[in-house]
Design a binder for these strands. Structure first.
Lengths: 145, 145
DNA sequence: CTAATTGTATAGCCAAACTATCTATCCACC
DNA sequence: GGTGGATAGATAGTTTGGCTATACAATTAG
């Protein structure tokens, strides 16, 4: 175990904990990070079974059942009976959900932009690459799950 | 408003949302992200008033009162009466809390390391720099609060 | 066909999040 | 010194996201 890597990962996760809260407060709205996270996963992965969606979000299945029920009431997602298994549901993002997610991302960008406005083009590309690197690690874990 | 920056910030926050959950599941323990976040803030900032700690964590003061009460029961933090204001408390991390945080970071590093093991030295330094860049943005916001 | 496995809903519990309100303390001003 | 306004933190109440355990129906394996 590489202790420099461990240190970096500890710092990275500490910083992401705080950025998550910063984002929640910055837009000042009442929709939860879990909702945005779920919509975001659906946007990038396409429709998923409820259990798959739980895995992708790293929450338990009953938790995801509850989150999906809330999103369904808002009509932000669609529940589609899975044609190959009568027990299962396909969960897809709905147009309203896509619009809401896009709006949130816009408002988030507006709110956070002043904080990042002083970064150089090089620094921004560092952030961009890091985002991709982390995103790829998360997706790798999904495949292994 | 720079739409590329907005896009990047939306992606960054989406990815950090998911990394936060990945970290919570990866270590499999019952202590919440809020507790770790709070201990982490206290480690880097030193003792803070309860309200300041709430601001640094981007949560409301009553939320922080509760989190601090839990941490106090675990003896992970110390509550010290503020000498200059009879209403206020200084909250400081206690040795038990520091040990718990260090242990958590170690276990987190162990759990996440396989995901990041394939990164090159250059990629790891990208992550490291990004972590610093984000961390600096968060601290800037604190000063402005 | 039967037993084991699987997908999701339900139940119950806890903690983190919020707003509103209250009480005691502090501070500014007259 | 006294009064009014502001502030620090506790308390109350509500909602939602987390969890484990369990139930039931559908699917799969032997």
């Amino acid at each position: 175990m590489n202790s420099e890597l461990s240190e970096l990962l500890g710092d990275l996760v500490s910083v992401t904990h705080r950025l998550t809260r910063l984002a929640a407060q910055a837009t000042g709205d009442s929709t939860s990070p879990a909702a945005w996270r779920t919509l975001s996963v659906l946007t990038s992965s396409g429709p998923l079974r409820l259990g798959e969606l739980a895995t992708a979000n790293r929450v338990s299945q009953p938790t995801m059942t509850k989150i999906v029920a809330n999103l369904n009431e808002l009509e932000w997602i669609k529940r589609i009976a899975d044609t190959s298994d009568a027990r299962a549901w396909q969960i897809a993002i709905a147009p309203k959900g896509q619009n809401a997610l896009n709006d949130w991302r816009y408002r988030l960008g507006m709110a956070l932009e002043p904080l990042f406005a002083d970064l150089t083009t090089r620094e921004l590309s560092v952030l961009s690459e890091a985002t991709d690197l982390i995103g790829d690690r998360i997706d790798v874990q999904e495949l292994a799950a």
